[in-house]
């Protein structure tokens, strides 16, 4: 699990890109391309290299009118999966 005070960071060289041909967002990283669904894009849209994990979860819970307890493990798993591949960092 990720601590509420941890800050997810998009490292240099990683960026969001809109794949207009397939009508979806992708994460472009060195030698990797990751396709996102709408929820994944919504999560990454909240990652501004300043917001703490707890703040991101709270904003998403408000936006989707869903309980924090439901959203937190999904967002943590999502971020951890990307962090394991060095596509995100958590400080």
């Amino acid at each position: 699990m990720i601590a509420d005070g941890a800050i997810p960071i998009v490292p240099r060289g990683v960026r969001l890109h809109q794949d207009r041909a397939r009508n979806r967002w992708v994460l472009l990283a060195p030698e990797k391309t990751i396709a996102l669904d709408q929820i994944g894009y919504a999560i990454l849209s909240e990652v501004d290299n300043r917001s703490e994990f707890g703040e991101i979860v709270s904003r998403l819970a408000s936006k989707y009118e869903a309980p924090v307890e439901q959203i937190r493990p999904d967002v943590a798993g999502f971020i951890n999966t990307l962090a394991a591949r060095r596509i995100l960092e958590v400080i």
């Binding site: 996102l36 869903a66 798993g77 999502f78």
Partner: peptide, 24 residues
């Protein structure tokens, strides 16, 4: 739109590999 577990799929050589999501 309702909340759902997000999906991550790695695109590699034209193939898409599920990294994270309901089916991973």
């Amino acid at each position: 739109m309702a909340w759902a577990k997000p999906v991550l799929r790695e695109i590699d050589c034209g193939m898409e590999i599920n990294m994270y999501g309901p089916d991973s």
